[in-house]
Design a protein around this nucleic acid. Structure first.
Lengths: 180, 180
DNA sequence: CAAGATTGACTTATCAATCTTC
DNA sequence: GAAGATTGATAAGTCAATCTTG
């Protein structure tokens, strides 16, 4: 069996201090959070080397995986990215200045200018994505193939349940980040 | 079997756009990140009702679970919280103004003033913690007891592996948040 | 007047520089 | 001179208000 990790230690402290509290949520969501935070600096450095930060990369990669012509509306972007519309405007301004995206004039609803990857943006997003996935694959390689499958399936079940319990704040203010 | 979740959809898009990239890391770390971000607003609202934000709560809960006399040094706090020392100073200032912690004069190393929960801070941290854990337990209750155990064990294995690969930036600048 | 995007005020973090004590 | 905490400058986000088009 496995040794105790820092979440086990933490739960043990709580069991002493507040023995009546059920900390099962921490065993799962707490670990998910810790992993997410802990792993971030290493991933971030991949993007830094590529010349952007992870928030900007999230925009680029969402456009890239949408396929040709790598073009989406701001509203689609900020919903998918789980950030506010104002936050997206800022990211787009920075990316446009860096020459990685452009806002294309186009027929149709003139309230929104679709956003499109430039050739350079596409190139650099692809490079960064490959490196990111290489790094993340290495990180989970301590698990066997069977364990990875199982872990993925259990997380999927949770994701599906949380998706159903739609917490979306609807309006002009969403929250959070992107998934990749 | 389970249906596809949004991470499956995303991986399918990538499989079309960049078929040679192995996205297994996304199946695990991507889901962990998505869950963390998605679940946050609901948890945040528990703390908002208690009169603080999640960053402030992280300080309070770290002190609370350390047990009597609920006192730690700033350095212990910001390392455990995975934030910068400057970030901690700010949180402490806010919490002190709110009367939830105090900086205690004490014998010993005068470079650091230990931080201590006030009675009120302790009371409110406990209430918020109970509510938080109740909420998180409900969130993972879609899994059976066996599934929760298994998922926890697989995540533990990953946490232990990541702990070993110490990414700590050492110096005065760390990064990130807290785990709970 | 609703939807879409942008702006501006405000918040909270990081990072580097500083001040104090060991 | 190194360790510990604070400060000040800067960055990036949210939220509410605004402007524009449908």
């Amino acid at each position: 069996m496995n040794e105790r990790d820092r979440i086990d230690e933490r739960r043990a402290q709580w069991a002493t201090e507040l023995p009546t509290v059920n900390t099962i949520g921490m065993a799962i969501l707490g670990r998910a959070r810790w992993l997410t935070l802990q792993v971030r600096p290493a991933i971030e450095s991949v993007f830094t080397r590529a010349g952007f930060d992870s928030g900007e990369f999230d925009v680029l990669s969402t456009l890239l995986r949408s396929g040709t012509p790598y073009r989406l509306r701001p509203t689609e972007l900020y919903r998918s990215l789980m950030i506010s519309s104002g936050g997206l405007t800022n990211r787009l301004d920075r990316l446009e200045r860096a020459g990685l995206i452009r806002r294309v004039q186009q027929a149709g609803d003139a309230r929104s200018l679709p956003v499109e990857l430039t050739r350079e943006g596409r190139r650099r997003a692809e490079v960064a994505f490959r490196e990111d996935m290489k790094l993340e694959a290495a990180m989970v390689s301590v698990l066997s193939a069977d364990e990875r499958r199982l872990l993925g399936a259990l997380l999927r079940k949770l994701v599906l349940a949380v998706e159903a319990t739609d917490t979306t704040i609807g309006a002009a203010g969403s929250t959070s980040g992107e998934v990749r």
